[in-house]
Design a protein around this nucleic acid. Structure first.
Length: 236
DNA sequence: GCGACAG
DNA sequence: ATCTTGTCGC
Protein backbone atom coordinates (compact mmCIF):
# COMPACT_ATOMS: atom_id res chain seq x y z
CA UNK A 1 0.00 0.00 0.00
CA UNK A 2 2.57 2.60 -0.99
CA UNK A 3 -0.11 5.25 -1.23
CA UNK A 4 2.60 7.89 -1.51
CA UNK A 5 3.52 7.67 -5.18
CA UNK A 6 2.03 4.62 -6.90
CA UNK A 7 3.90 5.19 -10.16
CA UNK A 8 5.58 7.63 -12.51
CA UNK A 9 3.56 9.73 -14.95
CA UNK A 10 6.24 9.88 -17.60
CA UNK A 11 5.13 6.72 -19.36
CA UNK A 12 4.29 5.47 -22.83
CA UNK A 13 0.69 4.67 -23.82
CA UNK A 14 1.49 0.98 -23.57
CA UNK A 15 2.85 1.39 -20.06
CA UNK A 16 -0.18 3.52 -19.16
CA UNK A 17 -2.54 0.71 -20.12
CA UNK A 18 -0.45 -1.71 -18.08
CA UNK A 19 -0.65 0.61 -15.08
CA UNK A 20 -4.43 0.86 -15.36
CA UNK A 21 -4.76 -2.92 -15.37
CA UNK A 22 -2.49 -3.07 -12.34
CA UNK A 23 -4.03 -0.21 -10.37
CA UNK A 24 -7.65 -1.21 -10.86
CA UNK A 25 -7.13 -3.87 -8.21
CA UNK A 26 -7.01 -1.03 -5.66
CA UNK A 27 -10.35 0.42 -6.71
CA UNK A 28 -13.03 0.27 -4.01
CA UNK A 29 -16.47 0.45 -5.59
CA UNK A 30 -18.39 0.78 -2.35
CA UNK A 31 -19.14 3.25 0.42
CA UNK A 32 -16.63 3.17 3.24
CA UNK A 33 -18.07 5.99 5.28
CA UNK A 34 -20.84 8.59 5.20
CA UNK A 35 -23.09 8.43 2.14
CA UNK A 36 -23.96 12.11 2.46
CA UNK A 37 -21.23 14.71 2.12
CA UNK A 38 -20.85 18.10 3.78
CA UNK A 39 -18.20 19.37 1.39
CA UNK A 40 -17.92 18.34 -2.24
CA UNK A 41 -15.13 19.34 -4.61
CA UNK A 42 -14.86 19.26 -8.38
CA UNK A 43 -11.74 19.10 -10.52
CA UNK A 44 -11.53 20.30 -14.10
CA UNK A 45 -8.80 20.85 -16.67
CA UNK A 46 -8.79 23.29 -19.57
CA UNK A 47 -6.38 23.97 -22.41
CA UNK A 48 -5.92 25.26 -25.91
CA UNK A 49 -5.08 22.82 -28.66
CA UNK A 50 -2.21 24.98 -29.88
CA UNK A 51 -0.67 25.66 -26.48
CA UNK A 52 1.56 23.31 -24.44
CA UNK A 53 -0.13 24.46 -21.24
CA UNK A 54 -2.79 22.80 -19.13
CA UNK A 55 -4.83 24.67 -16.55
CA UNK A 56 -6.37 22.77 -13.67
CA UNK A 57 -8.74 23.91 -10.95
CA UNK A 58 -10.35 22.35 -7.92
CA UNK A 59 -13.29 24.04 -6.25
CA UNK A 60 -14.61 22.98 -2.85
CA UNK A 61 -18.17 23.87 -1.89
CA UNK A 62 -20.34 23.16 1.13
CA UNK A 63 -23.69 21.41 0.83
CA UNK A 64 -26.38 22.39 0.69
CA UNK A 65 -26.16 25.82 -0.89
CA UNK A 66 -22.85 25.41 -2.72
CA UNK A 67 -21.10 28.11 -0.76
CA UNK A 68 -17.46 28.20 -1.92
CA UNK A 69 -15.00 26.94 0.68
CA UNK A 70 -11.70 26.99 -1.18
CA UNK A 71 -10.23 26.92 -4.66
CA UNK A 72 -6.84 25.95 -6.04
CA UNK A 73 -5.48 26.32 -9.55
CA UNK A 74 -2.30 25.51 -11.43
CA UNK A 75 -0.76 25.94 -14.84
CA UNK A 76 1.33 22.98 -15.96
CA UNK A 77 2.91 21.64 -19.14
CA UNK A 78 1.07 18.87 -20.94
CA UNK A 79 3.24 15.73 -20.81
CA UNK A 80 0.90 13.25 -22.41
CA UNK A 81 -1.40 13.47 -25.45
CA UNK A 82 -5.13 13.00 -25.36
CA UNK A 83 -5.81 9.35 -26.04
CA UNK A 84 -9.32 7.98 -25.48
CA UNK A 85 -9.05 5.66 -22.49
CA UNK A 86 -5.86 7.28 -21.19
CA UNK A 87 -7.22 10.67 -20.17
CA UNK A 88 -5.85 10.46 -16.62
CA UNK A 89 -2.28 10.34 -17.89
CA UNK A 90 -2.85 13.70 -19.53
CA UNK A 91 -4.96 15.49 -16.93
CA UNK A 92 -4.31 13.91 -13.53
CA UNK A 93 -0.79 15.30 -13.04
CA UNK A 94 -2.07 18.87 -13.31
CA UNK A 95 -5.06 18.04 -11.14
CA UNK A 96 -2.80 16.53 -8.50
CA UNK A 97 -0.70 19.68 -8.45
CA UNK A 98 -3.84 21.70 -7.75
CA UNK A 99 -4.81 19.12 -5.13
CA UNK A 100 -1.47 19.69 -3.44
CA UNK A 101 -2.26 23.38 -3.09
CA UNK A 102 -5.56 22.72 -1.38
CA UNK A 103 -5.63 23.18 2.38
CA UNK A 104 -9.11 21.74 2.74
CA UNK A 105 -9.73 18.02 2.58
CA UNK A 106 -13.15 17.70 0.90
CA UNK A 107 -15.42 14.79 1.80
CA UNK A 108 -15.71 13.87 -1.85
CA UNK A 109 -14.40 14.89 -5.28
CA UNK A 110 -16.21 14.94 -8.61
CA UNK A 111 -13.91 14.44 -11.60
CA UNK A 112 -14.71 15.66 -15.09
CA UNK A 113 -14.34 12.28 -16.76
CA UNK A 114 -15.45 8.68 -16.27
CA UNK A 115 -14.44 6.46 -13.40
CA UNK A 116 -15.50 2.83 -13.60
CA UNK A 117 -17.34 3.43 -16.90
CA UNK A 118 -14.11 2.86 -18.77
CA UNK A 119 -12.77 0.16 -21.14
CA UNK A 120 -10.52 -1.17 -18.37
CA UNK A 121 -12.79 0.05 -15.57
CA UNK A 122 -10.24 2.59 -14.43
CA UNK A 123 -10.90 6.07 -15.80
CA UNK A 124 -9.65 9.43 -14.54
CA UNK A 125 -11.96 9.55 -11.51
CA UNK A 126 -10.79 6.14 -10.30
CA UNK A 127 -7.15 6.88 -10.94
CA UNK A 128 -7.34 10.21 -9.13
CA UNK A 129 -9.30 8.68 -6.25
CA UNK A 130 -6.84 5.85 -5.72
CA UNK A 131 -3.96 8.30 -5.87
CA UNK A 132 -5.32 10.71 -3.24
CA UNK A 133 -7.32 8.08 -1.36
CA UNK A 134 -10.58 10.00 -1.34
CA UNK A 135 -14.14 9.17 -2.38
CA UNK A 136 -14.38 10.24 -6.03
CA UNK A 137 -17.18 10.32 -8.60
CA UNK A 138 -16.83 9.95 -12.35
CA UNK A 139 -18.88 12.53 -14.23
CA UNK A 140 -19.05 12.87 -18.03
CA UNK A 141 -21.23 14.54 -20.62
CA UNK A 142 -20.79 11.76 -23.17
CA UNK A 143 -20.20 8.02 -23.10
CA UNK A 144 -16.80 6.41 -23.58
CA UNK A 145 -18.00 2.81 -23.44
CA UNK A 146 -21.35 1.18 -22.80
CA UNK A 147 -24.93 1.47 -23.95
CA UNK A 148 -28.01 2.94 -22.31
CA UNK A 149 -31.68 3.57 -22.80
CA UNK A 150 -32.67 7.24 -22.54
CA UNK A 151 -33.88 7.98 -19.01
CA UNK A 152 -37.26 9.64 -18.47
CA UNK A 153 -37.39 13.33 -19.30
CA UNK A 154 -37.93 14.42 -15.72
CA UNK A 155 -35.09 15.51 -13.47
CA UNK A 156 -33.83 12.61 -11.39
CA UNK A 157 -34.71 9.93 -13.93
CA UNK A 158 -31.92 7.46 -14.64
CA UNK A 159 -31.07 4.28 -16.49
CA UNK A 160 -28.18 1.84 -16.38
CA UNK A 161 -25.06 2.34 -18.45
CA UNK A 162 -24.15 -1.21 -19.46
CA UNK A 163 -21.06 -2.71 -21.05
CA UNK A 164 -20.28 -6.37 -21.60
CA UNK A 165 -23.37 -7.30 -19.58
CA UNK A 166 -22.20 -5.29 -16.59
CA UNK A 167 -23.70 -2.12 -15.11
CA UNK A 168 -20.77 0.29 -15.21
CA UNK A 169 -22.57 3.53 -14.44
CA UNK A 170 -25.79 5.47 -14.86
CA UNK A 171 -27.30 7.87 -17.39
CA UNK A 172 -28.80 10.58 -15.18
CA UNK A 173 -31.19 13.40 -15.99
CA UNK A 174 -29.76 16.25 -13.91
CA UNK A 175 -32.08 18.73 -15.59
CA UNK A 176 -35.51 18.12 -17.02
CA UNK A 177 -35.51 18.23 -20.80
CA UNK A 178 -31.72 18.39 -21.07
CA UNK A 179 -29.55 15.54 -22.22
CA UNK A 180 -28.45 13.01 -19.60
CA UNK A 181 -25.02 12.99 -17.98
CA UNK A 182 -23.08 9.87 -17.11
CA UNK A 183 -22.14 9.00 -13.58
CA UNK A 184 -19.88 6.23 -12.41
CA UNK A 185 -17.96 5.11 -9.38
CA UNK A 186 -14.58 6.70 -9.00
CA UNK A 187 -13.20 5.25 -5.79
CA UNK A 188 -14.44 4.47 -2.25
CA UNK A 189 -18.07 5.09 -3.20
CA UNK A 190 -21.06 3.11 -4.42
CA UNK A 191 -22.92 3.93 -7.61
CA UNK A 192 -26.14 4.86 -5.73
CA UNK A 193 -24.23 7.27 -3.52
CA UNK A 194 -22.38 8.70 -6.52
CA UNK A 195 -25.67 9.33 -8.33
CA UNK A 196 -27.33 10.78 -5.23
CA UNK A 197 -24.41 13.17 -4.78
CA UNK A 198 -24.55 14.34 -8.38
CA UNK A 199 -28.28 14.95 -8.05
CA UNK A 200 -27.69 16.80 -4.78
CA UNK A 201 -25.35 19.05 -6.78
CA UNK A 202 -27.85 19.64 -9.59
CA UNK A 203 -28.73 23.32 -9.19
CA UNK A 204 -31.00 23.81 -12.17
CA UNK A 205 -28.36 23.14 -14.78
CA UNK A 206 -27.29 19.97 -16.55
CA UNK A 207 -23.78 20.35 -15.15
CA UNK A 208 -23.49 19.87 -11.36
CA UNK A 209 -22.75 23.12 -9.55
CA UNK A 210 -19.25 22.26 -8.28
CA UNK A 211 -18.25 21.21 -11.79
CA UNK A 212 -19.69 24.39 -13.26
CA UNK A 213 -17.69 26.45 -10.82
CA UNK A 214 -14.47 24.56 -11.49
CA UNK A 215 -15.06 24.88 -15.22
CA UNK A 216 -15.70 28.61 -14.98
CA UNK A 217 -12.63 29.13 -12.82
CA UNK A 218 -10.28 27.15 -15.01
CA UNK A 219 -11.48 28.89 -18.17
CA UNK A 220 -11.12 32.25 -16.49
CA UNK A 221 -7.53 31.31 -15.68
CA UNK A 222 -6.77 30.07 -19.16
CA UNK A 223 -8.23 33.15 -20.83
CA UNK A 224 -6.15 35.31 -18.54
CA UNK A 225 -3.42 33.08 -19.94
CA UNK A 226 0.07 34.26 -19.22
CA UNK A 227 2.68 32.87 -16.91
CA UNK A 228 1.48 33.25 -13.32
CA UNK A 229 2.35 29.59 -12.72
CA UNK A 230 -0.21 29.01 -10.03
CA UNK A 231 -2.64 30.54 -7.60
CA UNK A 232 -4.74 29.51 -4.68
CA UNK A 233 -7.59 30.98 -2.70
CA UNK A 234 -8.92 30.24 0.74
CA UNK A 235 -12.39 31.49 1.47
CA UNK A 236 -13.83 32.04 4.91
C1' DG B 1 -10.61 -3.63 -42.54
C1' DC B 2 -14.38 -0.37 -40.46
C1' DG B 3 -16.23 2.64 -36.89
C1' DA B 4 -15.98 4.51 -32.02
C1' DC B 5 -13.51 7.26 -29.20
C1' DA B 6 -14.12 10.88 -21.58
C1' DG B 7 -11.44 15.66 -22.31
C1' DA C 1 -10.66 20.33 -25.08
C1' DT C 2 -11.57 24.60 -28.23
C1' DC C 3 -13.21 27.38 -32.41
C1' DT C 4 -18.16 30.26 -32.98
C1' DT C 5 -23.60 33.01 -35.23
C1' DG C 6 -27.63 32.31 -35.23
C1' DT C 7 -31.51 30.12 -33.58
C1' DC C 8 -35.20 27.41 -31.26
C1' DG C 9 -37.81 27.20 -26.94
C1' DC C 10 -39.29 28.29 -22.13
Amino acid sequence: MDSRRPHEWNVTPQEAIRLQQELRARLMARDEGPTSFRTVAAMDVSYDKRSPWLFAAIVVVRLPGFQPVETATVQARARFPYVPGLLSFREAPAGLEAWGRLRTRPDCLICDGHGYAHPRRFGLASHFGVWVDLPTIGFAKTVLVGRFEPPGMRQGSMTDLVDAGEVIGAAVRTRGGAGPVFVSVGHRISLPTAVATILACAAGYRIPEPVRQAHALVNRLRKAGAEPASTGTQIG
